Simulated scan of single mutants.
Amino acid sequence: MPQRTMQFGLYGARGVKGHEAVARQLDALAGYVATPVSARRGLLARLHYLTRTDQARRRAREAGLTVTDRTLKAWLEGRRSPSRQNLERIEQAYRTVRRENVARYLLARLNREGRGTRVEIHPLNQSQVSRPRQRVVEYRTLNVRHWDRIVQAWAAGDERELDDAWVGQIVDLGSQWGQYEYVTNIGFAA
């Protein structure tokens, strides 16, 4: 059984860890606000999302947005602007709360009552690897039926757990799963 890759890119291969590609795809499905937080419209959209209910405010505080209600009100009314550091905190809190809010919905969509979701795995890019050192890797598909660990790790922002959860799924590819630890892209739609 293959082990995890220790020196990826040693001979010129390019790609990203599979769990990072999965996280990118889940982020795309989460549907974040497209306007950057530095623009007034993007700032207001995030602040409204984080302050529309008492529960949303509490979760934003837990996620790291620890400013007073007076400051939030001033930002919303446009009397003051947040500092660069506070803009980063707003963005981080928004992404954290949004992930938590959509996790249950995404989990139901991806599990599809036990039928799962087909995942397309595009292999790593070996165009810069000399011919004798290239491996034969091909485009693969995999039906993932249990997304629970993956979505929970993504929602929590736990990269190590997400990596372990993803590797736990790709071992279903058999003895070749190590070839798909690094990929160019992973695609799935829910």
Rank of each mutant, 00 (worst) to 15 (best):
V16P: 04
R24L: 13
A34D: 09
G114I: 01
A60I: 08
R109M: 09
H48Q: 13
K73G: 11
M6P: 07
A63P: 11
A30F: 07
Q7R: 15
S38R: 09
L106I: 08
H146C: 01
V22D: 07
R70T: 13
R109D: 12
S130T: 09
P82D: 05
E138N: 01
R61C: 06
P2M: 05
R4C: 02
A165E: 03
L65A: 06
H19C: 08
L10F: 06
D172M: 13
G42H: 06
A28F: 07
Y11D: 10
L26N: 00
A30Q: 06
R61V: 08
V22P: 10
R160V: 07
A30P: 11
A189D: 13
D54T: 03
V129D: 09
W75S: 15
L106F: 04
N143H: 05
Q25C: 02
N185A: 13
A56H: 00
Y49G: 07
L87Y: 10
N143R: 04
Q152A: 13
R104Q: 12
L47E: 10
V16M: 10
D27W: 02
E100S: 01
R52I: 08
D163Q: 12
R131W: 12
Q169G: 04
R24C: 03
E88F: 02
Q92G: 09
A34N: 09
A21K: 01
R135L: 06
W166D: 06
W154C: 08
L87F: 03
R84P: 09
A63C: 04
L47W: 07
Q3H: 08
R104D: 14
E77D: 15
P36T: 00
E161K: 07
E91D: 15
A60R: 14
Q152N: 14
L107C: 02
Q134V: 02
L142E: 00
R104M: 06
N111A: 07
L76H: 11
D148R: 14
L110G: 00
G18R: 01
Q169E: 13
D172Y: 11
Q85G: 04
L29I: 06
R41K: 15
R24Y: 09
L142H: 01
Y182H: 11
Q7V: 00
N185H: 07
K73T: 15
S175D: 13
V183H: 05
P123C: 03
S130M: 08
R140Q: 13
H146R: 12
L124H: 11
R80C: 12
R115P: 02
A153M: 05
R160D: 12
V183P: 11
I121V: 01
D69G: 15
G157M: 03
V129I: 09
Q85E: 15
A74M: 10
L47M: 09
I150L: 08
W75E: 14
E161L: 13
S130N: 13
R160L: 09
P123E: 04
L10T: 03
R89K: 15
M1W: 03
D163V: 00
L47K: 13
E138R: 03
R41N: 14
L106Q: 02
V33M: 04
I170K: 01
G9Y: 00
L26F: 03
V33C: 11
G114K: 03
Y180D: 02
A108Q: 15
R145Y: 03
A34S: 11
E159L: 07
E20Q: 09
P2E: 07
N185V: 06
A108T: 11
A34I: 12
Y11Q: 12
Q134I: 06
W75G: 14
A56Y: 00
E20T: 04
A190I: 04
R40C: 11
G18D: 03
V171R: 08
